[in-house]
């Protein structure tokens, strides 16, 4: 009964969202806002379909996904490895953690000019910026997760004469997994935002660059199509991360 109730609520909720789209259409049709700024959902949708069938929206989408994925993977590997290195040793933690705490609130986009000075307006610059920005949530989550491992587990490891690598892979990483996965999810959003910013600044092939060009040419339908697509990337990647999280952490709920 309750599950059926939930489905009805879901349908009603979709109806409300459809109502908002209808309202948007009405505002656009009545020209309450100039169509230069606000295309109707019909025009945005038509532009989206046209972009995929005859335009280059697909390749732009791939470009953005590529920037995001490379930067995020690089940040994941580096963040977890560095986090494990720092987190698994008490003295490393006390020497390095305060510096990281100081750097954490730094708006990461401020590194962009430095990256441009170092690498120029290139793909390498984008990769560096995205990886640098996305590394923080994972690095700090890994350090925190390693520091919060139940101390008795370390005692068990010592009495079993486990090597440091074995301790990291068999005890610390599984125990810190929820923290690390939460950090990885946060990093996804950061990676998407920084991909768009880098594309805008460096003119790299991607949605960020294409929405900016649409805006400059006042092609508002193309602009909205790009923004809708970016929203969908944000939604779908976070959805995929939730599934991955649920699967990886399934063993925890059973115990």
């Amino acid at each position: 009964m309750t599950s059926r109730g939930a489905i009805y609520w879901r349908i009603a909720s979709f109806a409300v969202a459809a109502g908002f789209v209808g309202l948007w259409q009405l505002i656009a049709d009545l020209r309450l806002v100039s169509p230069v700024f606000l295309p109707g959902p019909d025009r945005a949708w038509a532009s989206l379909v046209r972009g995929f069938t005859s335009g280059d929206l697909g390749s732009k989408l791939l470009g953005t996904l590529e920037h995001m994925a490379y930067g995020w993977f690089l940040a994941s590997i580096a963040g977890i490895a560095l986090g494990a290195l720092i987190g698994s040793s008490r003295s490393m933690r006390s020497y390095i953690a305060p510096s990281l705490e100081f750097l954490r609130p730094l708006p990461v986009s401020a590194i962009i000019p430095v990256a441009i000075a170092l690498f120029g307006l290139t793909q390498g610059m984008a990769l560096f910026v995205i990886a640098f920005g996305a590394i923080w949530p994972m690095l700090l989550a890994t350090i925190h997760g390693f520091a919060a491992v139940e101390p008795r587990l370390y005692e068990v490891a010592r009495s079993l004469h486990m090597s440091r690598l074995a301790v990291i892979f068999k005890i610390a990483l599984p125990s810190a997994a929820p923290d690390i996965l939460a950090g990885m999810r946060l990093s996804l959003t950061v990676a998407l935002i920084l991909s768009v910013v880098c594309e805008i600044l460096a003119g790299l092939d991607g949605l960020g660059h294409s929405v900016l060009l649409s805006a400059r040419a006042f092609r508002s339908a193309d602009l909205f199509a790009g923004v809708i697509l970016l929203g969908m990337i944000g939604y779908l990647t976070s959805l995929m991360m939730s599934f991955a999280e649920a699967r990886i952490l399934r063993y925890r709920r059973r115990s």
Binding site: V16, A17, F37, I193, V197, L212, V227
Partner: peptide, 26 residues
């Protein structure tokens, strides 16, 4: 809350920076 669920879920993941071009022309 239940009625707004889908709307909130649909608008929230739009990265704020993607609105930059819209804000720019408006």
């Amino acid at each position: 809350d239940r009625l707004m669920e889908v709307t909130v879920e649909a608008v929230r993941p739009i990265p704020s920076i993607a609105l930059l071009p819209i804000a720019l022309i408006a």
